[in-house]
Design a protein around this nucleic acid. Structure first.
Lengths: 140, 140
DNA sequence: CAGTATCCTCTGAGATACTG
DNA sequence: CAGTATCTCAGAGGATACTG
């Protein structure tokens, strides 16, 4: 899929209006909003860390909290809720004492994991280059 | 590169400390911070839209503003500054009247574009499924 | 045209305390 | 254990006006 196809992808929420031709390609409002929605999800402060933690199999709530440095209970709960709503993560509660709740990736979540992994790989590859650019820029 | 390799990738900022083994894999603090840094960049409200707009070649400041729905001058300027600092975007000013300034992707920026495109493609493929999940979740 | 400068608002998110 | 309920605050980001 090309950039332009994504930019112009017909919206299924309302008729998308092609803007008047200009000096460069323009984002259709709907598609810009849609991309932003996915990026909000992926770019969310904790989502990707949660997804990465669930890569190897089901994990309990408290183990998630331990595995992810710095996450608060509130944010972990909100993040999990959001991921469940999107269908990336499934929750299973066991009727035991003490209570046990496990979270795991759905197939959809697993497919996103591999995509996000490509981004992580890119980051790892260009880490040094980016740091160098930042230093050079900051020097003047 | 596997999830675990990314999770454990040795930091070049300070010695990374492997955490005590637990019930599930844990993120090393440094690597979690690094991934968050890249996701902050990519997940930024305007960055990806700017990068996508520059996909086809150099674009002037005011054309960028027109091409990206809803961006304010302030945010466009800040986003471009950030992208330049990271080395994803280059700026060229022409000594003319009226002044002309063009922005274009660097090779680094172009390589990120293709990676982000994979994410956009994933989004497009699973758009309907995600919307359905959200509806189902919201119903009860 | 291509930005800066300033003000202002509103939300993301941490800390803390409580509960089934 | 696995959450929820409040309080609080910094800062992301919009609107507007100004400038080289």
């Amino acid at each position: 899929m090309s950039v332009d196809e994504i930019r112009r992808r017909p919206s299924n929420t309302r008729a998308s209006v092609l803007r008047a031709p200009g000096p460069c390609a323009r984002w259709d409002d709907d598609n810009a909003a849609f991309i932003r929605e996915i990026l909000d999800l992926v770019g969310d402060k904790w989502s990707v860390l949660v997804i990465g933690t669930l890569a190897d199999g089901p994990v309990r709530y408290s183990d998630l909290a331990d595995a992810i440095p710095g996450v608060s209970q509130r944010m972990l709960t909100l993040t999990l809720k959001q991921l469940r709503r999107t269908g990336l993560v499934a929750r299973e509660a066991f009727a035991e004492v003490p209570p046990r709740v496990e979270y795991r990736l759905t197939p959809l979540g697993a497919s996103l994991l591999s995509t996000v992994l490509a981004l992580a790989e890119w980051s790892a590859e260009h880490f040094a280059e980016i740091r160098g650019n930042q230093l050079a820029y900051d020097r003047g």
